[in-house]
Amino acid sequence: MPTFGFNHVEFLLVAALWTLGLSAIAFIGGGILGFVIALARVSSSALVRGLAGAYVRIVQGTPLLILLFLIYFGLAIVGFNNLPAIIAAGAGLVIYSSGFLGEIWRGCIESVPKTQWEAAECLAMTRWQRMTRVILPQAARIATAPTVGFLVQIIKNTSLASVVGFVELSQAGKLINNSTFQPFIVFITVAVIYFLICYPLSAWSRGLERRLNVGRR
């Protein structure tokens, strides 16, 4: 039986790159979709608001694990049988992230003081101008810290992509454990790699938050 050694660490580090890649897909895709959701949540049409609200509630009310299974088997039903695992994993994480990011950003948009909306209206700005020139720049400043914080959640949740057969950091750990049967050292190493990726981001998010509060004081 092979023992846990340098080759295994190397294998884990390569898998960590896949974790980062999958996180990037989830963040970018989820960011675009989430932005649309956030705008829809503050739309002037009640129907659009309601639909976006229902989407958020469904995504936030089902476990990511079930979402991944649904997409994995759903894609097979529509006839995509031999898709690479990254498609199902990526799609699941994009939907998951969009539900949460949309809600975070809605909060940021709504936390821009109402007087700013009114002032923009008094200046005869169109709805589009008001959003792009007045509200969104201010909302973006508020949104940076929680968005970076959520990025940490995304990275951690890519670990669930292992259930659809995607070999990222956790799945790599499982594979090594199956061959060496030294679970403790293997998963400690996996945890340390996750920590090294996530901790700087958490610290950055906290720093951003502190700076924002200083600006407000």
């Binding site: 951690k156 949740n157 669930l160 454990n177 679970p183 998963f187 945890a191 920590f195 996530c198 958490s202």
Partner: peptide, 20 residues
């Protein structure tokens, strides 16, 4: 900090196998 910056899945494995 350690718990908040590592995935629950890995924590579950560590507890399960660690105890074993």
């Amino acid at each position: 900090e350690v718990i908040r910056n590592t995935p629950l899945l890995v924590q579950v494995f560590l507890v399960y196998f660690g105890i074993a």
